[in-house]
Design a protein around this nucleic acid. Structure first.
Lengths: 215, 215
DNA sequence: TGTACATCAGTGAACGCGCGTTCACTGATGTAC
DNA sequence: TGTACATCAGTGAACGCGCGTTCACTGATGTAC
């Protein structure tokens, strides 16, 4: 009867249909729900379109109104996440003059971002499917992931005579690889009883920055 | 009629049933086929028990004669792989006296192993499911992955005054993380047009070993 | 101001597929008497 | 030496599930006349 209408689905947030021009509202909600579910469930495989729809409060076919398929949805989430990462790194070095200290700060920001969103970091950086997204477009990825910030800091360090002369891209890659390796291990091998992040990070920065230092 | 018997399955290698005491023969064949398929297909998800059975030339229920479930099968493959990795690292440092050169050699062997078996490296090191296998048993994993070899080399380097005094485990972790990060990026971001492995490796070793060096 | 109509933003039900796993069975091999 | 029987090493068919996706539809909203 009257109550049956209420009982048809469990305690879903009954979504209001978007107004005429607001077709992208649902799109944004779907993106946000997918990002949340990634954080909660782990790999992209475990995030089903049905679960996304349930989280949003719409039907699963509605997703296909805004994304051609599941891969495109996850791709879009990835892109958003890469942008956030670049922002975080950019914010971390702001106001720091010494380029070596910039590198230290950027490394910390990168690591913290990864460990705060481990599953999103996973699909960005550890999942082959999405790893293949940025097809041989190193420049593009480099800037969207904040990598170019690191390269600039290294270059600046060399220019000022703080770091030993070298190919700044190679040097930056080595730093990136190190931090990426650290957070990957922390994310993947969660119950390995490793030293705390700060200690690992401090040690890594000391070692690798000392190795780069001009003598 | 007579030919129908031959036509029932496509060109499978018609497996000979194992003799009485040789019950483990099929077990070994299943392990090998699973390892092969991991190399070919990528993630553990894509390796189906049906595909393993087809590769071996047996029926898929036969797998359950030797493994309680799919996870146990993949776990077993992982264990084998970890052992091989430790062997490879052990072999790499044999005959080298200088511990710093040992570290360089071990890093190269590790990286080459990973890039020769990228998908097996993935499930060993990048997949959460199997990453969680070695529950908080750092000692155990450390030795099975060849990590203790690195720690010993670092310790030796410190003892001989070649490396600056430091916690050898922390130093070894930083090296491991760096190499792991490098190969992870190479595996996951395959079409990123990065410099060749040797160059990356050389540079990383130079940087990190210089950072550790006693002055 | 009223109304026919196009369009927008969705929905419920179903399809087909591949998967891990279980079930009831089979046929060869060795063993006890 | 012959034979009944236990055991070992498997098999074919099927179950049930969850998933991505499609299909035909609905009902609210704005628009033209």
């Amino acid at each position: 009867v009257a109550t049956a209408q209420r009982t048809k689905k469990s305690a879903q947030p009954v979504r209001q249909r978007a107004k005429r021009g607001e077709g992208d509202r649902l799109r944004d909600e779907i993106l946000a729900a997918t990002a949340d579910l990634l954080d909660e469930l782990g790999s992209a495989d475990k995030v089903s379109t049905r679960a996304v729809a349930e989280r949003v409060g719409c039907s699963s076919p509605s997703i296909y109104l805004h994304f051609p398929d599941k891969a495109a949805l996850l791709y879009a989430v990835c892109e958003q996440q890469f942008e956030k990462l670049a922002e975080v790194i950019g914010a971390a070095i702001e106001g720091i003059d010494d380029p070596v200290e910039q590198l230290r700060a950027a490394a910390g920001a990168y690591a913290r971002f990864a460990l705060e969103h481990p599953e999103q970091y996973r699909i960005m950086m550890l999942d082959e499917a999405y790893g293949k997204m940025y097809e041989d477009d190193f420049e593009n990825m480099a800037s969207s992931v904040g990598f170019d910030i690191i390269v600039r800091a290294v270059q600046e360090g060399i220019d000022r005579g703080l770091l030993a002369p070298a190919d700044p891209v190679l040097v930056a890659l080595a730093m990136w690889a190190g931090i990426h390796g650290l957070v990957s291990i922390l994310i993947v091998k969660q119950n390995l009883a490793l030293p705390p992040l700060d200690e690992l990070l401090d040690n890594f920065c000391r070692q690798s920055l000392d190795g780069m230092r001009a003598r």
